[in-house]
Design a protein around this nucleic acid. Structure first.
Lengths: 229, 229
DNA sequence: GCTGTTGTTTAGATGCGTCTAAATCAAAAG
DNA sequence: CTTTTGATTTAGACGCATCTAAACAACAGC
């Protein structure tokens, strides 16, 4: 049996692996999970013994197929839970993450199945992140470009908001920026800030750190439909 | 912060304390939680340090007020979860216990509140066990007599079924015995078995171990109403 | 091609929850 | 009142997840 901690490490390796390319460094894992590097090293040794990661000393780790499956299982739990909490229990957008982060390790297959049933097998969670299917096929995590890569005048639709901070998410929601929102890039300021205009003509300014967490697709020229909030 | 294990021990002490009277023995705790007696002893020492139990060496432990509050909090979580799983996620009667036993340690106050809201603050869980209120006032756990204390001809209404085994519970549900069911005691056999007759005139025989887990109230003479299943 | 910096791993310690084996207490039986 | 029996506690160990301090590898700069 796998401990909740092991699951956490596997999930983290998966996420870091999706972001960068090549093996995942000890320090990035340690930083993400808020532990010291030696702690991460020793956990990676354990996961290597169980053949959930491959490790090259002083280089980093990569998930094995089996390790990836475990990670996807946890991510499926996480995203299903987030969706359930938001849709069925009235949680706000920003509140779902922490609750899901704890519960994801403790629900049964039965629970997973029933939640997926009630939600009618959703494809994405409230942040717009794709939910792995029951068969746990790899999911492509990095579709689209981030908002901060765009230039003035670009017309885009928010796809995903990859942020965990619940205050920041609450702010975005308050200002009408959620998956599905249509935006026009108004200004890209040289001080590390992007200003966007919404369908209701209000503008919102976002520091690069936030804009970089917002993934968007280019909007089709016509600005009809699909700007639901 | 209290670990999930500590919460489990406190819940167990509470439940054993409700059953018997006087201090709770080390061995009864160990047996309930399926650990060895030394393990239970050492945990009781830790809980004593935290002033959650009072301990008299070689005698046993009693919950302090604070310990009881923690236990009631966990029991509230457990029974709310059981109710939620049954009512909102379509779990069968017998399936809810194990799931709730894991989740009870990992839900937030927020989650508890929202679940209670959705369920409209229920008084009892699917087994008929009372759910502690949000203010965690002690709850009287042992109302009514057990079915096995009754004699032939007694007319009773099932109040609570204090059993954890999911197969046994499924059997009872199949045969129409759930909280609220009205029964007539048909026969009390000297081999440790009780036979009861249901509203639909079917009879069911139950060994004493099961009958002793079924708590009942005497039915009012008229056999109308209240026999809903 | 050495050297110094940066990041990684080893070594050794801690607290938790658990175990087995041995010692000790308490209460029942003689 | 002593002895026996059964439960309880002490002693000592282990695996997990974590830490700090120290040793070590890799690579970039000179």
């Amino acid at each position: 049996m796998l401990s909740a901690k092991m699951e956490d490490y596997l999930k983290t390796v998966y996420e870091l692996q999706c972001k960068g390319d090549g093996p995942v460094s000890t320090s990035s894992i340690a930083e993400t999970l808020d532990v010291t590097p030696p702690t991460a090293t020793s956990m990676m040794e354990k996961l290597e013994e169980r053949e959930l990661v491959e490790r090259e000393k002083y280089k980093g780790v990569t998930l094995t197929t089996e390790g990836e499956t475990v990670a996807l299982e946890i991510i499926r739990h996480h995203r299903l839970l987030e969706t359930y909490l938001a849709e069925q229990l009235g949680y706000d957008w920003g509140e779902v993450h922490d609750e899901a982060d704890r519960l994801e390790h403790h629900i049964s297959e039965e629970f997973e199945r029933r939640v997926a049933d009630v939600l009618d097998d959703p494809d994405v969670d409230p942040h717009g992140d794709p939910i792995p299917t029951e068969s746990l096929d790899p999911v492509e995590e990095s579709a689209g470009e981030t908002l901060s890569e765009h230039v003035e005048g670009d017309r885009v639709i928010v796809q995903r908001v990859r942020d965990r901070d619940s205050e920041e998410l609450a702010y975005l929601e308050d200002h009408g920026i959620t998956p599905g929102t249509q935006l026009v890039v108004e200004e890209v300021a040289p001080i590390g800030m992007v200003t966007v205009r919404l369908a209701d003509d209000n503008t919102v300014s976002l520091p690069d750190a936030i804009a970089g967490a917002i993934r968007v697709d280019e909007a089709t020229d016509r600005s009809e439909a699909d700007s639901a909030v």
